[in-house]
């Protein structure tokens, strides 16, 4: 048992472990990697990087699991959309990528031994989380994308819409911060 502890101590104090797995990577490293991988995404799937679009498909699949049907919903009514839903999870590149996102985040936090199930502090927190999630999800569909699909990929595709989205994202964040300070402090 003591040798196990010693081995663990050797690993956790190893500079390579600390640099690569324990400490957060610099913003610049993250930015460069994101830029490279969004190019890979565009080149392999012929679609720019997006996050909330595939989640909307997850919603449809879950709804169908409970016997619902989205065939008549305007959002899912196009032929391409119907085909994506029919072909299923593993054939939807975006869905697989989103699953990888969650798995990767879990792995990173486990490698750094920083995993913790956080306590819910108040009912207010639950209401804010649910309300915030609904607003973000609704907004992302109405705007044809989230801060990844509409902002990041929009700007990366040299589209003006990405910049317009960005301006209103900032305005929304200012209003949101004011509300947060007013109701959460």
């Amino acid at each position: 048992m003591s040798s196990f502890k010693e081995t663990m101590k050797k690993i956790t104090s190893n500079p390579v472990y600390v640099k690569w797995l324990k400490d957060a990577w610099p913003y610049l490293t993250g930015a460069i990697l994101l830029s490279l991988f969004q190019i890979v995404t565009l080149a392999t799937t012929y679609n720019p990087w997006g996050v909330t679009g595939p989640y909307t498909n997850w919603g449809a699949w879950i709804f169908e699991l409970f016997g619902g049907s989205v065939d008549k919903w305007y959002y899912f009514s196009s032929e391409g959309m119907q085909r994506t839903l029919e072909n299923g999870f593993l054939a939807d590149g975006g869905s697989v990528r989103n699953a990888g996102l969650i798995l990767g985040a879990l792995l990173a936090v486990l490698f750094a031994s920083q995993f913790k199930i956080k306590k819910i502090k108040s009912k207010k927190q639950v209401v804010a989380a649910v309300l915030g999630g609904l607003l973000m999800g609704y907004g992302a569909r109405i705007a044809y994308g989230c801060n990844i699909g509409a902002l990041y990929s929009g700007i990366a595709s040299l589209s003006l819409s990405g910049w317009v989205f960005g301006i209103f994202l900032f305005l929304g964040a200012i209003v949101g911060s004011k509300l947060l300070v007013k109701y959460f402090m």
């Binding site: 306590k119 819910i120 927190q125 911060s177 947060l180």
Partner: peptide
């Protein structure tokens, strides 16, 4: 501040 998310 356990259980509080940024920027709280």
């Amino acid at each position: 501040c356990f259980g509080e998310a940024c920027p709280i």
